[in-house]
Design a protein around this nucleic acid. Structure first.
Lengths: 125, 125
DNA sequence: CGCTTAATTAAGCAAAAGCTAAAATAAAAA
DNA sequence: TTTTTATTTTAGCTTTTGCTTAATTAAGCG
C-alpha cells in the first residue's frame, strides 16, 4: 500500500520489523478489542450499556422510552451489541429482555464504572 | 423522536424517569468516554495506540512503515487522535513525534495493557 | 380466529469515515 | 536560493453508519 519509504536518519529497519512482529502477536486480541470499542464508542450504545449495567436487564421498549428514540432505532443498536457478543437477549412472552453478556464484561465494566465515579474527563489527579 | 409509547404491563413511568435522570447525570462524562472509545475502536488507530504505549514516541514515517500504510492515511489518523486529546505531537527538526497524552490515559492504559496479557477474547476464566 | 402489542427486519437516504492521489507547508541540506 | 525530505492538507470517491418509514414476524387476548 506504500510507495515511497521514508529515508530519514533514524530509519531503523530492525526496529520497524520488531514493532511489526509485536503487533502481529496481539493482532487477534487487538481486532476483538477494536470491535468492542467501536460498539461502545457510540453515544447511544454506550448509554444502553450504562443503563444495563445499572438495571441488570431492560426490554427494547424501556430503552426506547428512556432514550426518547424509536423502538426500531434502538432495536438495531441492540442487534449490533448482541452480534458483537456484548449483550444477550431472552424472551419472556412477547417482550425481549437484554442484559450485559459475559465475554467482554472485563473490558466494559471498568469503563462503565468510571462513569458513575468521575463526572469530569480527567479521572483523579 | 418517538411517536407511540409502549403500553406494556410494566411501563413504570417513574422508573423510566429515574433512568433518564441518572443518564443525564453522567452525560458529559459519557460523551467524552464515547468519543475516546470511538477513536480507539478503529483497528488502525488502536494499533497506533498500542505501538505508542510500547515505544513512548514514534514519527509519522515510522508508524507508516510498521503498518504498511500511506503516510497520508496515517497522518489523518494521528490528527484525529491528537484532536481527541489522546496524543500530542512535538516537532524535532522536520520530523514530528507523536506520543500518548495524559488526559485519557487512565482509560486507555488498561485496555492496551490487556492486549499484551491475554491473546484470546476471554481474559481469564 | 382476528386484533393488538412487542420486536425485528427491510428499504432508502443523508451524513460520516477512511482511503488515494495530488497539492501545499515547512524545515534541512546542497 | 534551489532542492530534498517530512508532514499536512485538500479534493474526490467508496463504504459504512445510523436514522426513518413501512412491512413482517410472534406472542398474547377478546
Amino acid at each position: 500500500m506504500k510507495s515511497t519509504a521514508c529515508i530519514r536518519v533514524f530509519a531503523d529497519t530492525n526496529h520497524i520489523r520488531q514493532c511489526q512482529t509485536r503487533l502481529a502477536h496481539v493482532e487477534p486480541a487487538l481486532q476483538s478489542l477494536a470491535s468492542v470499542l467501536a460498539l461502545a464508542g457510540n453515544e447511544v450504545r454506550l448509554k444502553i450499556l450504562f443503563l444495563l449495567a445499572d438495571e441488570q436487564q431492560l426490554c427494547v421498549c424501556d430503552i426506547a422510552d428512556v432514550l426518547q428514540m424509536t423502538v426500531s432505532a434502538v432495536s438495531q443498536h441492540l442487534r449490533k451489541l448482541k452480534d458483537g457478543g456484548v449483550l444477550h437477549a431472552h424472551k419472556v412472552g412477547q417482550t425481549v429482555f437484554y442484559a450485559l453478556s459475559q465475554p467482554h464484561l472485563p473490558v466494559l465494566q471498568p469503563l462503565l464504572a468510571g462513569l458513575s465515579a468521575a463526572p469530569s474527563p480527567q479521572p483523579a489527579q
